[in-house]
Amino acid sequence: MKKRQNVTIKGTKAGIVLHLDDSCSYEELKKELDEKLSANQRTQAERQLTTVKVEIGNRYINDEQREELKDLIRQKKNLAVDDIVSNVVTREEAERLKAENEVVTIARIVRSGQVLEVPGDLLLIGDVNPGGTVIAGGNIYILGSLKGIAHAGAFGNEQAVIAASSMKPSQLRISEHLNRSPDSIQDNEKREMECAYIDENHQIIVDRLQVLIQLRPNLTRLEGGH
């Protein structure tokens, strides 16, 4: 009877992908991984550093085991661990993901010197005064006047948007992109609700709110956006 393969090595253009079985014991897995990497090393000619992606399926490993696997792979010549990918999400990760996908609704005025920060989307019913700052991991929606600083997509989400009933910010920021309020718009100019987003040229654009229907079709989670 053919022995079950707990470790499968696959070469790609980017490097090596290691598929590790998630049903065997961790010790069995470690032993076979060491043997196969040693055998694979003997068959390979001397070459430049190769990146390794490790896929562990539905297996949970703690930080100590994660470092142990990395060290085992690094001991082999010319191998560098790029990432270890698991389908299992820890409670802490699940809570973080949940928080980042929640809409937090707050009714207040953010005054000068104050900072309001949420991990997910922010729905602010009130104004952001000059000198006030709002920061969100996701989108920012302001039912009021934005005259201070707004930073959406704070964790690197470039698809995040900022919307306000009155868009007169001192500074707009989406992910790592920064922009001040457009000079072409005068304070006494009457405007409808507007939004800010990053365009294909990686510039922050301020436009009518209606453009988001085409630009961000997956923005809503209710009707029309599942």
Rank of each mutant, 00 (worst) to 15 (best):
L69R: 02
V54F: 05
R191H: 11
L146P: 08
Q48K: 10
D63S: 07
L124K: 01
Y197W: 14
Y141W: 06
L29M: 14
T220C: 11
A136R: 02
N139T: 13
R191D: 07
V104G: 03
I106E: 05
S165H: 12
N87Q: 11
T51A: 03
P119C: 08
L97P: 02
T220M: 13
G148E: 05
R111E: 12
N157I: 00
L33M: 14
S170W: 03
R74C: 00
I9R: 15
G120L: 08
D22H: 15
R208T: 03
L33R: 06
D71N: 13
D199P: 00
L97R: 14
Q210S: 13
Q44H: 13
G131D: 01
G11H: 11
I213K: 15
K76S: 13
L79I: 13
I185M: 09
V88H: 04
G11Y: 11
E95L: 13
Q210P: 00
K31G: 01
Q75H: 14
Y141T: 14
I56T: 12
I185E: 10
I174V: 09
C195G: 08
N188V: 02
L209T: 04
I198W: 08
I204M: 07
Q171D: 05
A14Y: 06
Q214G: 04
V88W: 00
E35H: 10
L33F: 11
Q5K: 14
L209A: 10
H151T: 02
C24T: 12
Q5S: 07
D71P: 00
V103F: 10
K31H: 09
N6E: 07
I56E: 06
L116A: 03
I162F: 00
R96L: 08
G120I: 09
I198A: 10
V206Y: 03
G225F: 03
N157D: 15
K2H: 07
N58T: 10
E194V: 05
D127L: 07
E35D: 10
E92C: 05
G144F: 03
Q41S: 06
Y60Q: 08
E200H: 02
K70C: 11
V115D: 03
N179C: 13
I185Q: 08
V7E: 04
D121Q: 09
G138W: 00
E28G: 11
V128S: 01
E55W: 08
I205H: 04
R191V: 08
C24D: 13
V118F: 05
G138M: 07
Q44W: 14
Y197F: 15
E223Y: 11
D121Y: 01
E100K: 15
H226V: 10
I61K: 08
L143G: 06
D34C: 09
C195I: 13
V128P: 04
